[in-house]
Write a protein that binds this DNA or RNA. Structure first.
Length: 643
RNA sequence: GCUGAUGUAGCUCAAUCGGUAGAGCAGCUGAUUUGUAAUCAGCAGGUUGCGGGUUCGAGUCCCAUCAUCAGCUCCA
């Protein structure tokens, strides 16, 4: 048989051979490392015999799909161990994920830490038994019979077309419904660790039963596993929820409540810097600032549709059944900007009109969802709404993206985000305005714009806003969990609901398009991301403390006080550490506090009129004339952009 | 909201079987005048998240509640 290998080489093998045998024929080392194979673009197990002329790529732990095969088998090993220890447990599903694997169990009681250890021990036994993993195929009715005692598997099978041939994977006494592929034997799983237990709804719906999920991960080498566990530990050190508190950026209080963080002076300083920067940048780009109320009567939200689609997420003041007037804190501010637009008639000549606002918003998130500065009940959004004619939409969209990219460069996260094109879910009529035609045309329009720009994006169904599709800019936190940082949305629904119009060239009234967007997202969340990205060492221009002056002796203290005044006058955020004792410790502390510049002075500096400068990340850069230092720092603050 | 875990000084942690809440760092006071991980001495810091209960006695056991964490669901 002839096989086209991944390196482009066409190789002839004698008779028909499985992928495992092909790998062995190529090299013993490859055979040992092989985990799965890509045959003509599809992933298979190593026991697969490819057709003559197939293109075969042997997958190892270095390949995404090879890793997944190993992790998937690991999840089966875990399930097998659980069944050995707790035979009455029912298995639900257990896939590989980006960082390892999990399995959902319907257990008699939830597993605790001690159970995890026992399960891990039993897994070790199963891997040492080195059981071969076999694929078994059976028709649907037979599969139903085979899984008769497991309602979850039955449900999965029932959902598949009647003529489907189902596959099971068997290792020792254990067999599980599974599409595969898997690695050839349980002995291939060597270095693994169970990480956590959590609840998870069956098939991801809160209406279903909550199952017990165990997360784990596995690696090829002991050092890789150790490195991964170490990475998890270090991620904790960067976690904004820990670091942000340690660095005194924010705090929370039992009596203030959940999801209501309090920004301390340092955090507030960073936020103020970002707000000033964004508001100035928006003004340069033709936005007009508006100020609108934090609450409104229910009437407004009834027009906008929030009352029907978003009421659960709102703080409603008053009781609809009793009170003649019910107010609600705003969860979004679009309706307010639309009312501003409607307060006058507009000519096509005025468009586009861009209203921006640093907007405080309130959303009544459910209790388990709050998290540090990332998910909160009150937040500050750099919000804006652009009213434009249909032919202006594409340019305005690009203009918004240009602004966002500029902002990302200035805060240094341009390469850390992923673009997501968020579309609606036609089946979810409760969440989305039910107008399939309008959804279709708007999504096509947005896709055209995205493709014109040549953006590298992923599509996601069921992630749109209730009034239109979105381009979301996604950011991963230290634990790899993804959140939306910025968003641009095209709205086809609200202009009609608010009966917005402009007078066109021909003197008739036309319906405008609306773009909703946030330039830097919500400041609280962006701040959290920045703390994690920079491990607290924020870039100079936004750092709450830009320069720290330190006196070696009391004699140099007066000298430094002079420079403190001059630095302040130049707009530099400076602090003076008056305690000259423990200077080594203080410098070290300043380093871990991520102060960009330290200027140290003793008797010799005071005599010469210089400062000894230490720059974050670079160490001592020598003595410098005080005025030259002020110029250096001010220039760097002005520049902003992080390369 | 759901499942599980956790709340002791500003931070990190200790307190045996239910038997007087304790240490380091940080803070304050004084001495020290010092050049890159730690000068010395002293002082202060707590209704053990809050509220009930069991007990002669509760940080420890039970109930309730608030908050925090991980995950699910939801979302900027």
């Amino acid at each position: 048989m002839k096989i086209l290998l991944a390196d482009g080489q066409l190789r002839e093998f004698e008779g028909s051979m499985s992928v495992a045998q092909i790998a062995a024929a190529i090299s013993g080392k490859l055979a040992k490392k092989a985990l799965a194979a890509r045959i003509d673009g599809k992933i298979f197990g190593l026991d697969t015999v490819p057709l003559d002329g197939s293109r075969v790529e042997i997958l190892t732990f270095e390949d995404e799909e090879g890793k997944k095969a190993l992790w998937h088998t690991a999840s089966h090993v875990m399930a097998q161990a659980v069944l050995r220890l707790f035979p009455e447990t029912k298995l639900a599903i257990g896939p590989a994920i980006d960082t390892g694997f999990y399995y959902d169990f319907d257990a008699i009681r939830p597993f605790d830490a001690a159970d995890l250890e026992k399960i891990e021990e039993e897994m070790r036994r199963i891997t040492q038994e080195d059981l071969p993993v076999e694929r078994i195929e059976m028709p649907r009715d037979k599969a139903l019979e085979f899984t008769a005692d497991n309602p979850y598997k039955q449900e999965l099978i029932e959902d598949l077309p009647k003529d489907t041939v189902l596959s099971f994977y068997k290792q020792g006494e254990f067999a599980d419904l599974c599409a595969g592929p898997h690695v050839p034997s349980t002995g291939r799983i060597r270095h693994f660790k169970l990480l956590s237990v959590a609840g998870a709804y069956w098939r991801g719906s809160e209406k279903n039963k909550m199952l017990t999920r165990i997360y784990g991960t596995a690696f090829e080498k002991r050092e890789e596993l150790a490195a991964y566990l170490e990475m998890l530990k270090q991620a904790k050190e960067r976690d904004h929820n820990k670091l942000g508190r340690e660095l005194k950026y924010f705090t929370t209080s039992d009596v203030v409540g959940q999801g209501l963080p309090l920004l301390l002076p340092k955090g507030a300083k960073v936020m103020q810097t970002l707000i000033r920067f964004v508001e100035d940048e928006e003004e340069k780009r033709g936005y007009q600032c508006a100020r609108t109320p934090l609450m409104a009567k229910s009437d407004l939200y009834k027009i906008s549709g929030h009352w029907d689609h978003y009421k659960d997420g709102m703080f409603v003041l008053g009781d609809e059944r009793k009170d003649s007037e019910v107010l609600a804190l705003r969860p979004m501010e679009c309706p307010f900007h639309f009312i501003i637009y409607n307060s006058d008639i507009h000519s096509y000549r005025e468009l586009p009109i861009r209203y921006c606002e640093t907007a405080t918003l309130f959303r009544n998130e459910s209790s388990g969802e709050m998290h540090g500065l990332i998910r909160v009940r009150q937040f500050t959004l750099a919000d804006a709404h652009i009213v434009c004619t249909p032919d202006q939409v594409a340019d305005e969209f690009k203009g918004v993206l240009g602004l966002i990219i500029h902002v990302m460069r200035c805060i240094g996260i341009e390469n850390d985000i992923r673009y997501r094109f968020s579309k609606w879910d036609p089946r979810n009529t409760e969440k989305y305005i039910d107008d399939p035609q309008a959804w279709e045309t708007t999504q096509v329009l947005m896709k055209r714009i995205l493709d014109e720009i040549g953006l590298d994006y992923k599509e996601a169904d069921g992630e749109a806003a209730f009034y239109g599709p979105k381009l979301d800019l996604q950011f991963k936190n230290v634990y790899g969990k993804e959140d939306t940082l910025f968003t641009i949305q095209i709205d086809f629904a609200l202009p009609g609901r608010f009966d917005m119009s402009y007078v066109d060239k021909d003197g008739t009234k036309k319906r405008p398009y609306i773009i909703h967007r946030s330039s830097i997202g919500c400041y609280e969340r962006t701040l959290a991301m920045l703390i994690e990205k920079y491990a607290g060492a924020l870039p100079l221009w936004m750092a709450p403390e830009q320069v720290r002056l330190m006196a070696i002796t009391d004699r140099s203290l007066d000298y430094l006080k002079g420079w403190e005044q001059k630095l302040k006058a130049a707009g530099v955020r400076v602090t003076l550490d008056e305690r000259s004792e423990k200077i080594g410790y203080k410098i070290r502390e300043a380093r871990t506090e991520r102060v960009p510049y330290m200027a140290i002075a003793g008797d010799s500096e005071a005599e010469k009129g210089t400062l000894a400068i230490r720059k974050r990340g670079e160490g001592d850069i020598g003595q410098m004339d005080g005025d030259a230092f002020i110029d250096l720092v001010s220039n760097e603050i002005m520049k902003k952009v992080i390369f």
